[in-house]
Design a protein around this nucleic acid. Sequence first.
DNA 1: CCGGTGATGCCCT
DNA 2: GGGCATCACCGGT
Length: 189
Amino acid sequence: MDADDLAMLAGPASAVAPRLLGSYLVRELNGRRLVGKIVETEAYDESDAASHTFRGQTKRNATMLGEPGHLYVYFTYGMHYCCNVVCGPAGYGSGVLIRAVEPVEGEELMVQNRHGVIGRNLTSGPGRVCQSLAIDKTFDGHDLNQPPISLVIQPALPDCDIIQATRIGIKQAVEMPWRFYDRQSRFVS
DNA sequence: CCGGTGATGCCCT
DNA sequence: GGGCATCACCGGT
């Protein structure tokens, strides 16, 4: 990421979320590279009742109020990790949940991380993304400009390929249309 | 293909 | 002590 990319991430989550479609999440693991193309995202913002930051800063969500371009990882439902790209200015709690990626490189190792799951279910869903790329809470706060997890921004998808919809799995603010996915991808949750 | 449900642990109230 | 930004598995279609 260069200075322009970081400036983009400092913008509002609802603008960053569609902009991240088509970019790459790169994970270096055991000397190998795992690359996933981001194909589904959701925006979360402190003005938003579904967001972890809605009720202010806590020990769990502190990363989300930090510097844009870092990774916010949280644990949920007793067994899954989910990861977000922190966005917005420092001090403002917002981020973009990575809900699905498409394997681009290192698919065999992703399958191994997922205990043999193959096909669409390999990486379609936020818990699956983290498991396939071996991302856990130890990476909460990680700078996405540094190995072993980095974000490589690609050109924006054309508008005609971006579908906007309501978010999944939440009980608050269900009507906000802050989920975005790539129409061309079969790896959407 | 679809909906229901059990698993399971941490954070917040 | 309740609730959760989920997943895998099961059964019925």
